[in-house]
């Protein structure tokens, strides 16, 4: 009993077919081959599977396909860079050394992306709160916060 849903994924209209009980994370990774979204814990704790759904950051491991509606907009790490240029967040993550092993990086960037879309001038404390749902075991977070802060200071449109 698979189900068709017309989604907008990374700006493109896609008809997606999947079982309604399938996790959105698996639909993205397996059906759509968008493997930039990672699985760390499978229970909404680590944030590695974070994506942006209709403007809000969510954990794709605890959403099932059936919960989606026609017209829902999904943005993943694969959908934020320009054709030739990295997204400013990606660029600052690179330059600040905010990515070590990199497994939390896509989710972390998506959480920051959702924040900056809503609030282009967050304080350091607001940045910390916005990515508190994304666990990183490598960096000690400091360089991640710094990368997001630099993005804020650079005044680019997200």
């Amino acid at each position: 009993m698979e189900k068709n849903i017309a989604l907008i994924i990374n700006g493109k209209k896609r008809k997606v077919k999947a079982h309604p009980a399938e996790r959105l994370l698996d639909v993205l990774r397996e059906n759509l081959k968008l493997t930039g979204t990672k699985e760390g814990c499978g229970e909404g704790e680590c944030g590695a599977c974070s994506i942006v759904l209709n403007g809000e950051v969510v954990n794709s491991c605890i959403i099932i396909f059936g919960q989606l509606d026609n017209g829902d907009e999904i943005t993943t790490i694969e959908g934020i860079a320009g054709k030739k240029k990295l997204h400013p967040l990606q660029q600052h993550f690179l330059e600040c050394g905010a990515s070590q092993c990199g497994i939390c990086t896509p989710g972390m960037i998506m959480a920051a992306y959702a924040l900056l879309k809503k609030n282009p001038k967050p304080t350091r404390e607001e940045i910390k709160e916005a990515v508190a749902g994304n666990l990183c075991r490598c960096t000690g977070y400091t360089k991640i916060i710094e990368a997001i802060e630099k993005c804020v200071i650079s005044n680019v449109k997200i």
Binding site: T35, T37, K38, F93, E95, S99, G102, T105
Partner: peptide, 21 residues
């Protein structure tokens, strides 16, 4: 020098291939 990590581009874009990918 603070050289940017050589595998960094792949990591920030989600292209890096971890075993489950």
């Amino acid at each position: 020098q603070n050289v940017i990590r050589l595998d960094g581009q792949d990591k920030v874009t989600g292209r890096a291939q971890y075993v489950d990918d």
